[in-house]
Amino acid sequence: GATLVAINTSTARRIGISLNPSDFNRQVSTANGAIKAAVVSLDHLQIGKISVDNVQAMVLDDRALQTNLIGMSFLQRLQKYQVQDGALLLVQ
């Protein structure tokens, strides 16, 4: 699993995160190989009724990340998370 929440550049723009090319200064390994990423702090991340403030995330190019990923920077701040009957159960 991902250490940090991972979002693509389209999502970052949509939620108001403005990045410069120089912000992409972290080398990360993905299923598609190594790529540069920008590390950001999300003021607020909400999934359904579960809400966490100040979540560290990385932003990757849309070509490298087509869907956003829930990482441990979000999950470890919950009381409980588990896969149950094919669904992800989140408890705050």
Rank of each mutant, 00 (worst) to 15 (best):
T67E: 15
D61G: 09
A34E: 15
R13F: 12
N68C: 08
G16P: 04
Y81K: 02
L60H: 05
L4D: 14
V59G: 01
R26D: 01
A64C: 02
D61C: 01
R77D: 03
L65Y: 08
L88C: 06
R77P: 02
N25I: 01
N32V: 13
I50Q: 02
Q82L: 07
P21M: 01
A64Q: 14
A34D: 12
A87C: 09
A87L: 12
G48K: 04
R26Q: 09
V55K: 04
M58F: 06
V83A: 09
L69Y: 10
D53F: 06
V40G: 14
I47G: 01
D61T: 05
N25A: 10
S73C: 05
S10H: 14
A37D: 07
G33V: 11
L42W: 07
G33Y: 13
L88I: 08
L88R: 02
V59W: 03
L65M: 02
Q92D: 11
Y81L: 00
N25C: 08
K49S: 12
N8H: 15
D43P: 05
A31M: 11
D43N: 05
T3E: 11
A57I: 03
D62K: 03
V59K: 06
S22E: 12
L4W: 05
V5I: 14
N8Q: 07
L69T: 13
Q76N: 15
A87M: 15
D43K: 08
D61A: 15
D53T: 01
G16S: 08
S18D: 15
L45K: 15
T3C: 08
L89A: 05
A34M: 13
Q66V: 11
T67A: 14
A12H: 09
G86I: 02
A64D: 13
V5L: 07
D23T: 03
L78S: 04
H44P: 00
H44M: 08
R13G: 14
S73R: 11
N8R: 12
A6F: 09
L4V: 04
I7S: 00
T30N: 10
L75I: 10
Q79K: 09
M72N: 02
L65K: 07
V5F: 06
M72H: 04
K80A: 05
D53L: 01
L42K: 14
R63T: 15
Q66K: 14
Q79M: 00
Q27G: 00
G71M: 04
D62T: 10
Q46G: 11
F24M: 03
I47Y: 02
S10I: 14
N20S: 15
K49G: 09
